[in-house]
Structure formats: C-alpha cells, structure tokens
C-alpha cells in the first residue's frame, strides 16, 4: 500500500480520526484463544472490565459476552479471572 506524501498529510503529525486503531487488528498476536461456555457464564463482567484490549464485548440485551478475536491478544486474563471457569484458553 502506498503511503501519503508530506504534502497531503495532516499537519504536525496530528491524528484527526479518533479511535482509528480499530483499523489495526491485534488478533494475529494470539497463540491461545479464549472460548466462552455460555452455559456457565453469569454475566458478572469481570472479564469485560479486566481485558486490557477491550476485546470482551458485552451485550446488555441478552446478558451475554463474546470475545472479539480481531483484537484479542490471547493474554488469558479473562479465563484466569472468571470466577465460574466459563472461559477456557484453546490453542489456535
């Protein structure tokens, strides 16, 4: 992909688009992926608050969580912190 030349870049290195790192997928870093057992999940949200990457998605409507594998780096904090062992780490 060809990159923008200096004449057309925004000035001073500012990044005008907030939250643009969503375009950068960190899911490729992962060696193990967290898998959620919905039957065990109590929607306590500890995995959601402790995820360093905001990769645990929370759905209030049906009280469910899911892992966003586009960004999950596979650290395993969610599995480690889950009080009911509803998340297990599975090799990719």
């Amino acid at each position: 992909m060809s990159k923008t030349g200096w004449r057309n870049l925004p000035i001073a290195g500012i990044i005008p688009k907030a939250g643009s790192s969503l375009e950068y997928k960190t899911g490729t870093w992962r060696a193990f992926k967290p898998v959620v057992d919905e039957s065990k999940c109590t929607f306590c949200l500890l995995c959601w608050i402790y995820c360093p990457d905001g990769a645990v998605k929370r759905f209030n409507s049906n009280k469910k969580i899911s892992i966003d594998y586009d960004y999950c780096k596979g650290c395993g904090i969610c599995a480690s912190e889950c009080p009911v062992k509803a998340i297990s780490m599975v090799e990719e």
Binding site: G19, Y24, T26, C51, P52, D53
Partner: peptide
C-alpha cells in the same frame, strides 16, 4: 481508549 493498541498482551497499564 479502544482496541487495536499495541500494549503487550496482559498489560496492566492498558487496564
């Protein structure tokens, strides 16, 4: 502070 940052996996500071 949204996903796609490049802090290490399991980073406490990102949290």
């Amino acid at each position: 502070i949204v996903s796609g940052h490049r802090m290490c996996a399991g980073c406490g500071s990102a949290i």
